[in-house]
Design a protein around this nucleic acid. Structure first.
Lengths: 148, 148
DNA sequence: CAATGATATGTAATAATATTACATTAGTTC
DNA sequence: GAACTAATGTAATATTATTACATATCATTG
């Protein structure tokens, strides 16, 4: 863990919503150094490999892992490494990592087992409207938009 | 459904692996017209909205929906619309849409219910090695790579 | 038929995200 | 200190996606 990587992790930890690589790049520029894209992507790769952050595929952006466990460097998929589940709010942009992920993973593992598919990583991303935003919106602009 | 859209759908249906937007663009060029990116993205948007194709987020590429049902234009999430589950093989690039998706969706729905999260769409992407590739590789280059 | 409006497409430019290739630096080990 | 490794710097470029505005197509209707 180097200063660069710590800085990137810090920025991701501080943010309230997922952060894009080029957002990070901008923010790093204000701190003396003059980083280029590879600098950021290398740091992100490192943090991803060590399970400290996750990439939200639908947003091309990054969030901290909120389910840090024992040893993230050697665990299989079951230990949350390279596998995560998220609720993404379209309204506020907030992302929640799902806590009872084992239930989801169990189903996926069973499916993969039947098909003899070797699972190496998995991502589950649910998009919709979070409780707070639904409440805040209710009665104002009408009901929460129906699934389209 | 216009000729443009039919062409794009045809190309995606024909391919054996997910197709990128710019691949489609190249292929369309060979057919008289001179399409630009918006042409392709518009066709893709239409096909996505009507549930005829899916986007694989991890690959920024598109596959046909293999679970076409009754009416794709008005169904909620449960009817596979805007919601899909995939097994992605890192070796051959093949993508399989999971058939017993209801089990996965049920778990997700239950989680969202508990959190009062309104689900509008969901994607599940499992990356690993498919049965055929695992068999083909076995004994040659050693065992299938362990989860990293 | 002309005017309208809705849908689809054409076109040019640009934005946003990500990677390649190669040079340099800083520690460690022998 | 030479050789090796890991990390970083730097420039250029590749890939994916969107914006803004112009044009066409076609059904409807006044």
């Amino acid at each position: 863990m180097t200063p660069q990587r710590r800085d990137v992790l810090g920025l991701i930890l501080t943010a309230t919503t997922p952060v894009g690589a080029y957002d990070l790049l901008e923010q790093l520029k204000t701190s003396g150094r003059k980083p280029a894209p590879p600098t950021v992507y290398r740091a992100l790769d490192f943090l991803l490999e060590h399970g400290l952050i996750h990439r939200i595929e639908r947003l091309s952006a990054f969030v901290p892992c909120t389910h840090l466990q024992h040893d993230h460097t050697h665990g299989p998929v079951e230990n949350c490494l390279h596998s995560a589940q998220f609720l993404i709010c379209r309204n506020c942009g907030g992302v929640t990592e799902i806590a009872d992920a084992p239930r989801v993973l169990d189903v996926l593992k069973s499916i993969c087992g039947k098909k003899n598919f070797t699972m190496q990583s998995a991502s589950v991303e649910v998009e919709g409207v979070c409780e707070d935003c639904a409440r805040a919106t209710r009665g104002q602009k009408g009901p929460v938009p129906a699934p389209n």
